[in-house]
Every structure is written in structure tokens, then in C-alpha cells.
């Protein structure tokens, strides 16, 4: 089934933006990715972290392809969840690769990889830090922390989408920036509604993961990464 609504992603294909704006967004995205790589280079990137980032990427991409029959069909990004699980730096690389895979099959254009990466990296960063804040400082439970992080991240990214499209404009369109903004507000409103659904799913998934593998969330919760070998104690505790 094809989808009618989509979440937090600029589903523009190649040629929608003028060459100048394609270059500008690609350079900005390139700088953000370079920063993520720099952060990773400073820390120690273990094979485990690399494998986890790769798995997050492949699950994220698989989730992209599943259409959920709500409101005529939506698909999830799971980028806020990727941010919470993989962290901001590896999560940023994950979303870049998801966008490259997606472009290869027409799920957004190649020229849009830059703009899409900016949007998705915003989701990853905002979700990670929001989740970390509400868990470590405000001590919210995991469901509401995940829910809040995803909704907030997707709402911010919806604004980023509006900003990018309103600033760039659609090439060939004679509409003014204000008219484009008006059109985009309707699309953004649909995205935010779908973002609430993704938020609920993220909240449930975070709760689910916390019961089975709480060590996977310890980084985002500011506890430091727990050794996976000791996770069995948490599993026993959760099952009690």
C-alpha cells in the first residue's frame, strides 16, 4: 500500500529545489556530518558501537518501508528512537546512510539528501538531549520521556522543514515565499499529527526496551554504558 502521509521527512524529489539551494543544504549537512565524525574520532569507536549503529540504520530503513494503516497510511522515521539508542554522533551517521539508501530507491531525491539529513539530524539531536534531560533531571518515566522526546523532536524538525522549503522555494513555482509557507504549514500540520503517533510508538518501544535491555538506554539516561553481560540482572529485575 502506498502511503499518503509521511513523518518528518522532506519528500521532495530531485529538481524541486534550485541548484543554489541544493548546494547550500548539502554543504550545511556536510558540515554537520563532519562534526559528528570529529566527535566520534575524539572518542573511542568500538566495533560494538559501529555494529549497533549499522543495525539501527538497517532497522530504521526497514521501518521506513512499513506503511501503518492509520489515517490512510503513514510511515515512521524512528529517528528520535535512533538518537536515543545510538546517541547523537552515531545516530547522525545512521540517518545520513538511511537517506542515501532511500535516495537510491526514490524515497526522496539524491539532491535532497543534504536537506533531509539536516532535518533528520535535528530529530536525532533534539530527541537525544530532550530524553536525557527529562530522564536525568526531571525523572519522568520512560514512556513519557520517549513520547515527549519524539513529539518535541518531530515538531522541531517540522519547523525546520517549513524553514528549508520556505527559504528555498520550489523552482518553477511563481508563488511567493509567503504562499509557499502557507502551503507548507498544511503539510507540516499533517506531519505533526503523524509525529504524535510516532511519539506514542517511541514511548512504547523505549518502555519495552527498558524491560528487556535497560543497558541500551543507559547512555541516553546519563548512567554510562552498562556492560551487556550484566544486563541479565536487569532482565530478572524487570521480570519480577
Amino acid at each position: 500500500m502506498s502511503r499518503l502521509v509521511s513523518v518528518a521527512h522532506i519528500h521532495l524529489e530531485d529538481g524541486a529545489f534550485s541548484p543554489e539551494w541544493v548546494i547550500i543544504w548539502s554543504v550545511v549537512a556536510g558540515a554537520m556530518v563532519a562534526l559528528a565524525l570529529l566527535v566520534l574520532r575524539k572518542g573511542k569507536v568500538t566495533p560494538r558501537k559501529l555494529a549497533i549503529a549499522a543495525m539501527c540504520t538497517s532497522v530504521g530503513f526497514a521501518a521506513f518501508q512499513v506503511s501503518i494503516p492509520i489515517f490512510g497510511g503513514i510511515h515512521l522515521n524512528l529517528t528520535p528512537l535512533i538518537g536515543i539508542l545510538a546517541g547523537p554522533a552515531l545516530g547522525s551517521l545512521s540517518v545520513l546512510i538511511i537517506n542515501i539508501f532511500s535516495a537510491s530507491i526514490g524515497h526522496g531525491g539524491w539532491g535532497m539528501v543534504g536537506a533531509n539529513t539536516i532535518v533528520n539530524m535535528t530529530e536525532v539531536l533534539v530527541a537525544y538531549y530532550f530524553y536525557r534531560l527529562v530522564r536525568s533531571k526531571l525523572d519522568f518515566n520512560r514512556f513519557f520521556s520517549g513520547l515527549g522526546a519524539a513529539i518535541f523532536a518531530l515538531s522541531v524538525s517540522a519547523l525546520v522543514i517549513i524553514g528549508i522549503v520556505a527559504v528555498s522555494g520550489l523552482q518553477d513555482s511563481e508563488q511567493t515565499k509567503e504562499e509557499v509557507l502557507g502551503n507548507m504549514l498544511l503539510i507540516a500540520a499533517a506531519n505533526i499529527v503523524a509525529g504524535v503517533i510516532e511519539g506514542v510508538i517511541t514511548g512504547y518501544v523505549v518502555s519495552f526496551i527498558s524491560k528487556i535491555r535497560p543497558d541500551l538506554l543507559s547512555d541516553a539516561e546519563g548512567n554510562g554504558r552498562q556492560d551487556p553481560d550484566t544486563a541479565s540482572e536487569d532482565i530478572d529485575a524487570a521480570s519480577d
Binding site: V59, I68, I201, I212, R213
Partner: peptide, 29 residues
């Protein structure tokens, strides 16, 4: 119900993915 159903699907997918990633990482190391 739909939302909880898909949360289970993606939750399981992520758990399986992480466990597989850890096994693969150990094997690669």
C-alpha cells in the same frame, strides 16, 4: 491498538537487531 501493535513490532526488531549486532561485533573482534 494499532500504535501498541507496531510499537511491539519495532521494539522487537530493535532488540533483535542490538543482540545480533553485539554477537556480530564479538565475532568480528
Amino acid at each position: 491498538r494499532q500504535t501498541r501493535l507496531f510499537a511491539g513490532i519495532f521494539g522487537l526488531a530493535f532488540i533483535h537487531a542490538f543482540e545480533r549486532a553485539e554477537r556480530i561485533a564479538k565475532a568480528m573482534e
